[in-house]
Computed example of a mutant assay.
Amino acid sequence: MGLEVRQLGFRYGPRQALDDVSFTLAAGQLNALLGPNGAGKSTLYALLTRLFSLQKGEIRLDDVSITHPSSRLKQRLGVVFQQSTLDLDLSVLQNLEYHGALHGLTSQHVNRAATELLERLDLADRRHDSIRSLNGGHRRRVEIARALLHGPSILLLDEATVGLDTAARQSINRLVRELCHEQSLTVLWATHLIEEIDSDDPVLVLHQGRLLADAPAHVICHKQQTRTLAEAFERMTELKESRRCI
Rank of each mutant, 00 (worst) to 15 (best):
Q108P: 12
E182W: 00
L96Y: 03
S53R: 11
T228C: 02
N95H: 07
F52K: 09
G78V: 01
A32C: 08
F23L: 15
G40S: 11
H181C: 14
G35H: 04
A46N: 14
K74R: 15
S107D: 09
D200W: 06
H207D: 15
A113F: 07
T115I: 03
H103F: 12
R127W: 05
H99R: 13
L117G: 02
A17K: 06
V205Q: 03
S91Q: 08
P69F: 06
Q82F: 11
C180F: 06
I131S: 12
K240M: 08
L123A: 13
A160Y: 00
P202C: 10
R139K: 12
T237G: 09
K41G: 10
N31P: 11
Q7E: 13
V21Y: 00
E178W: 02
G13D: 10
A160N: 04
I220A: 02
H150F: 02
P202V: 10
Y12H: 07
D89Q: 07
R60P: 08
C221F: 00
H103S: 13
R120S: 12
I154R: 01
L25C: 10
T106D: 05
Q108Y: 14
L61M: 09
D63A: 11
P14Y: 01
L105C: 13
T191W: 00
V79P: 00
H218Y: 09
I66T: 08
L155N: 09
S171G: 12
F10C: 03
A32I: 07
L48Y: 04
R127C: 07
L48I: 07
A32Q: 05
L157K: 07
A145D: 00
V79A: 07
D198K: 11
L44K: 01
A27R: 03
N37E: 06
L48N: 04
H99F: 09
H181I: 15
P36D: 07
D62H: 14
S242E: 08
A168D: 03
L185Y: 02
V5G: 08
I197N: 01
Q94M: 13
F10I: 04
N37M: 03
L96T: 03
L117R: 01
L193S: 09
A17T: 01
G2K: 04
G2D: 05
L229H: 07
R243D: 14
L156N: 08
E143C: 02
A160M: 01
S71Q: 09
S65K: 13
S65T: 15
S130T: 15
L175I: 11
I154D: 02
H222P: 00
Q29M: 11
R139G: 07
L134P: 13
L164N: 03
E4T: 15
I194C: 12
L148M: 08
G209I: 00
D165I: 04
R243T: 05
D20C: 08
L229R: 10
S84W: 01
I59F: 03
G137F: 01
F23W: 08
P36N: 05
L8P: 00
F81V: 06
T191M: 01
I66D: 01
V142A: 12
V92W: 01
S70R: 04
E231S: 14
V110A: 04
L118I: 09
V21W: 00
A160P: 15
S84D: 01
L239A: 15
S242C: 05
R127M: 14
E238C: 11
N135W: 03
T161V: 10
H207G: 15
D122F: 09
Q7F: 05
I66Q: 13
R244Y: 11
L30S: 12
T226V: 02
